[in-house]
């Protein structure tokens, strides 16, 4: 059964993912993402950057989606979107979505847009616990903490799905 598998069996090395400190600006995160995900020939899915404090404690994660949400112009009136599907002639100024204001917003620190790391698993926890946390909290990756203090890796949905789905379709 899937319960036999533990987190240690499926966790990934931290250095599979880019690291940044919390004081980096969104613009710097964009540069890190471009260098690590787009220009690089090799990257590990999902696209996520790990955010740390001064003592190398994990504070949170940030994804390209978080970045785009963080630099979305406040001038963009999202309420008109509710009419798009029903009224064909509704005009939405899509160009205002990421306008000049986005450049200013990109100077904000990443700590303002990251998803804080609040949930962790232990390397000895069952994979099912990681599956529960990731599906219910919609986390891109789940940090693995050893002895309640040392960050040793992360787990992602890919391996969790692989193990649990094997059990389901097993004859």
């Amino acid at each position: 059964m899937a319960e036999r598998k533990i987190v240690r069996d499926i966790m990934l090395e931290l250095f599979e993912y880019p690291h940044i400190p919390y004081w980096f600006s969104i613009e710097q995160v964009i540069k890190v993402m471009k260098a690590s995900f787009i220009q690089s020939q090799k990257h590990t899915d999902p696209l996520v950057v790990l955010v740390f404090d001064e003592k190398y404690n994990l504070l949170g994660t940030v994804t390209p989606k978080d970045v785009l949400k963080g630099i979305t112009s406040s001038n963009f009136n999202s309420s008109v979107l509710s009419h798009v599907t029903v009224e064909e002639k509704t005009e939405v100024d899509w160009n205002s979505l990421f306008g000049e204001e986005s450049k200013n917003l990109a100077q904000k620190p990443v700590s303002e847009i990251m998803l804080p790391a609040k949930h962790f698993v232990d390397p000895l926890d069952p994979v099912t616990k990681a599956a529960y946390l990731m599906t219910n909290l919609d986390l891109p990756v789940l940090p693995v903490i050893e002895d309640k203090k040392k960050l040793v890796g992360v787990v992602r949905m890919f391996e969790i799905f692989d193990i649990i789905s094997d059990e389901i379709i097993k004859k």
Binding site: H19, I20, P21, F24, V32, S36, F52, E54, K55, Y56
Partner: peptide
């Protein structure tokens, strides 16, 4: 500070 980052 002692942490890890990417060299931009």
């Amino acid at each position: 500070t002692k942490t890890v980052m990417m060299p931009l």
